[in-house]
Design a protein around this nucleic acid. Structure first.
Length: 496
RNA sequence: GUCCCCAUCGUCCAGAGGCCUAGGACGCCGGCCUUUCACGCCGGUAACGAGGGUUCGAAUCCCUCUGGGGACGCCA
């Protein structure tokens, strides 16, 4: 196989959504797998709807996912520029060449008129196809209109016959040109349309494969025609099925989060998103493995593993992948990812990464199996980072303001004051001894202590928690809880 | 309406004629572990859309139907 050159060519009319992200990922994986080149090209020929912010948003999404491009915005490359809005002269040149070779012609029909006719046809239940009015113009009529500078578009003259191309995921696909109208390639304002700019760029940039969404299948015959008209080799196509919402409709905003950066904000790891997206519509074939790093995916990826049918986006599975990747993240790395979140929550201090490093690592290990998202470390670990506890009233009523909880805690506190080492094992011995001496089940005391030191009914193992808190903080909380327990009417239960 | 794509558990995939009394994962339901919640472990639930062919033999090949999706713009 020749060295593949592939591209992801988003239109900056919105943020990078999961569908686009997966297409980008497949292109990236394909390039990396075969030692090819991955190009990022911005298709901003729709001036009305494109914006610089959207370009930045897409670049952010690409970077977050780790989809580095070899040629494209910011870094340039041998085929610069990589913004279609800056390649206009090439498109006009190609359009003019096509007119000169009679592969295309001027069309003076007004868009407004075309629109009404199209709507009328639709109302009548059919589809409107351009009737080639302007192909009937004589050379002198054209010359006259041109001299008057009448606005006109350029249409491609679709030749009759079958148009065939081989799709790497769908196999051979054939269209009858009779069903394809003479499409506009250059708008009356001189701007190229999608078909023209895509083919022009893909030819000039030497694309060998076009990996894109399924929704482009019906565009492909038009583009094949364009390749043939300019005498360029037709690349191999691979049309990737779409991502659907739970209702089997094309995934859109009304299904919830669709922007990849939205998932980033929700505490999803890019490695989880990549893993999830890669396996949505693609499979490495035999083998039951599902957990892959980006590198491993790049080694296993193959276009032939892409399935032909659309796939439903399953948030539950994404969350599972996230949890799995979270658990596999090295402590150092986890800290880096967590820092912004902890800072935002006002829970970060530089001591976390210096003298209390070991302490922090242990905390993270304890929280890991319980966290499904990055943000869970903040909520789950808050009681360890911050002494201002928020008490769960129901838990307080159930475990603290009940029986002799206060006395039990007081007895425990007395022992905690004197216990030699504050490690989990010693603490367990102490607590069980106190429970026995007071004639209660260990569980009873444990539950009371948990609420006392965490404010909640659920937490990681209580002995680890106590140990991590340390003697001073643990005892202070228990003492406060005792007063809480004696206060029959609840009253102020927040803070310390 | 026309054209195109697709069709295995609720969902994502495996399966490229006999290995399939259809496998894995998520979810769900049990159980174990346990101080709670998770993690982990064990087990269970659940599918080849229908009908015709081809073949000794079909989830796998062909046809029809049905169903779902996409495209029909001077949007990309």
């Amino acid at each position: 196989m020749k060295i593949p050159r592939v591209r992801f060519a988003p239109s900056p009319t919105g943020y990078l959504h999961v569908g686009g992200a997966r297409t980008a990922l497949f292109n990236w994986l394909f390039a990396r797998r075969h030692g090819g080149v991955f190009i990022l090209r911005i298709e901003d020929t729709d001036v009305e709807r494109s914006s610089a912010e959207m370009v930045d948003g897409i670049l952010d999404g690409m970077r977050w996912l780790g989809l580095t491009w070899d040629e494209g915005p910011l870094i340039g490359g041998p085929h610069a520029p990589y913004f279609q809005s800056e390649r206009n002269d090439r498109y006009t040149a190609m359009a003019n060449r096509l007119v000169a070779q009679e592969h295309a012609y001027y069309c003076y029909c007004s868009p407004a008129d075309l629109k009404t006719r199209r709507e009328a046809a639709e109302a009548a239940g059919g589809a409107f196809t351009y009737d080639r009015t302007c192909t009937k113009l004589t050379p002198s009529e054209i010359a006259e209109r041109e001299s008057r500078k009448e606005p006109r578009a350029i249409r491609f003259l679709v030749p009759a016959g079958a148009i065939r191309f081989n799709d790497l995921v769908h196999g051979p696909i054939e269209f009858d040109a009779a069903n394809i109208e003479d499409f506009v390639i250059l708008r009356s304002d001189g701007q190229p349309t999608y078909h023209l700019s895509v083919v022009s760029d893909d030819v000039e940039m030497g694309m060998t494969h076009v990996v894109r969404g399924d929704d482009h299948i019906s565009n492909t015959p038009k583009q094949v025609l364009l390749y043939q008209a300019v005498g360029a080799p037709v690349p191999d196509f691979a049309h990737v099925p779409l991502i659907l919402g739970p209702d089997k409709k094309r995934l859109s905003k009304r299904h919830g989060a669709t922007s990849v950066m939205e998932y980033a904000r929700l505490g999803v790891l890019p490695e989880a998103m990549v893993n999830f997206l890669a396996l949505l519509g693609w499979s490495p074939g035999s083998g039951d493995r599902e957990l892959f790093s980006q590198q491993e995916l790049a080694e296993a990826f193959d276009l032939s593993g892409i399935s032909g049918g659309n796939a439903v986006f399953n948030p539950d599975k994404l969350e599972w992948f996230n949890q799995q990747h979270l658990m596999r993240l090295a402590p150092e790395e986890l800290i880096t990812r967590l820092q912004p979140l902890l800072e935002e929550a006002g829970l970060w201090s530089s001591t976390l990464t210096t003298e209390r490093r070991a302490w922090f690592f242990t905390v993270l290990e304890l929280l890991k199996p319980r966290a499904k998202r990055l943000s869970d470390f903040v909520t789950l670990g808050r009681f360890l980072f911050d002494d201002a506890l928020e008490f769960d009233e129901a838990a307080v009523d159930k475990h603290l303001r009940t029986g002799d909880a206060a006395q039990h805690l007081a007895a425990l506190d007395a022992q905690l004051q004197t216990v030699d080492t504050f490690d989990p094992a010693s603490l367990e011995v102490v607590l069980r001894a106190v429970a026995e001496s007071r004639g209660v089940k260990a569980g009873t005391l444990i539950h009371a202590v948990r609420v006392a030191v965490t404010g909640k009914a659920v937490s990681p193992g209580i002995f680890e928690v106590l140990s991590l808190l340390g003697r001073t903080r643990a005892r202070a909380r228990i003492i406060h809880a005792i007063s809480l327990a004696t206060d029959a009417h609840g009253g102020q239960t927040t803070g310390r």
